[in-house]
């Protein structure tokens, strides 16, 4: 599904990612944990195709395709989805209009028929009900005035609609209270399948109580420092990241 090989990324001359290697197979859920500033969010943006990064070395293959050469929309069509830590507010674009435009853009490129308005409405109604997303919210401008929880639920709704092969969730738990965390996690878990992979990026272990990973990576100082099973997350919760942050650069 996803193969990251020796990925080096710099921003304005500062190297943020210093050689990432990561392989994600179909159906696997990987958690990437790490302290602030470890490069977790950079990795998610680089995968989704944000412009501000210089790839200085390495490659990323997504189902055999060279991901780094694709435009962000081509990556979405190919099946990559990034749930943003801070979803962008777009005044003047109704959420519903945005969802329909996105879904039909992706469907068209995937060789499927575009959905008519009634077909689309039916689909959105069904998916949004499960995520506690109200019709009123969908009429509002995209993410504008949404609470933290509403923004994250809207991200998961987009994910559910676009049916990605690989979901990258960047700090999806940030800004959520316990109830919202449950709704969002249930939404994510409902999308787990043997074909669909996930990379869950988080600072805290609590999200991983709800979205239970197969593999946990610890990321610090631009590298994956340790890889283990879900018990590694518990260990981190107890001991913190001090072991990884404190190590002097070799």
């Amino acid at each position: 599904m996803l193969e990251i090989k020796n990925l080096h990324v710099a921003v304005e001359g500062n190297e943020i990612l210093k050689g990432i290697d990561l392989t994600v197979k179909p159906g696997e859920v990987h958690a990437i944990m790490g302290p602030n500033g470890s490069g977790k969010s950079t990795l998610s943006y680089v995968l989704a195709g944000k412009d501000d990064y210089d790839i200085t070395a390495g490659e990323v293959l997504f189902n055999g395709q060279n991901l780094l050469e694709m435009a962000p929309n081509e990556r979405a069509v190919a099946g990559l989805f990034l749930a943003f830590q801070y979803p962008i507010e777009i005044p003047g674009v109704a959420t519903m209009t945005f969802l329909k435009t996105a879904l039909n853009a992706v469907r068209k490129e995937r060789g499927k028929d575009e959905l008519s308005t009634p077909e689309f409405m039916k689909l959105v109604k069904e998916k949004s009900a499960k995520l506690n997303v109200s019709q009123e919210m969908l009429r509002r401008p995209l993410n504008v005035g949404f609470s933290g929880g509403e923004k994250k639920r809207a991200e998961i709704l987009q994910m559910a609609l676009l049916e990605p092969a690989l979901c990258v969730l960047d700090e999806t738990d940030s800004g959520l209270d316990i109830d919202a965390l449950r709704v969002v996690s249930d939404g994510v878990n409902a999308l787990r399948s043997p074909e669909r992979s996930m990379i869950v990026i988080t600072h805290y272990q609590r999200l991983l109580d709800h979205i239970v990973p197969d593999i946990v990576h610890v990321m610090a100082r631009g590298r994956i420092q340790k890889t283990g099973g879900k018990e590694l997350a518990k260990e981190l919760e107890a001991k913190g990241y001090a072991d990884y942050v404190g190590e002097a650069a070799a």
Binding site: A48, G49, K50, D51, A71, P72, N73, R75, A76, V77, F81, L82, F84, P87, I88, I90, P91, G92, V93, F98, T101, A102, L103, A105, V106, E109, P141, Q158, L162
Partner: peptide
């Protein structure tokens, strides 16, 4: 706004269509 462009494109919307949406949104008020 580049962040808005990236967000729309990350949902599969091609660059020209994303631009069109954002210009229309800008005039909407």
């Amino acid at each position: 706004d580049e962040d808005m462009m990236f967000y729309l494109m990350s949902r599969g919307i091609p660059a020209d269509e994303a631009e069109t949406m954002l210009i229309a949104a800008f005039l909407e008020e």
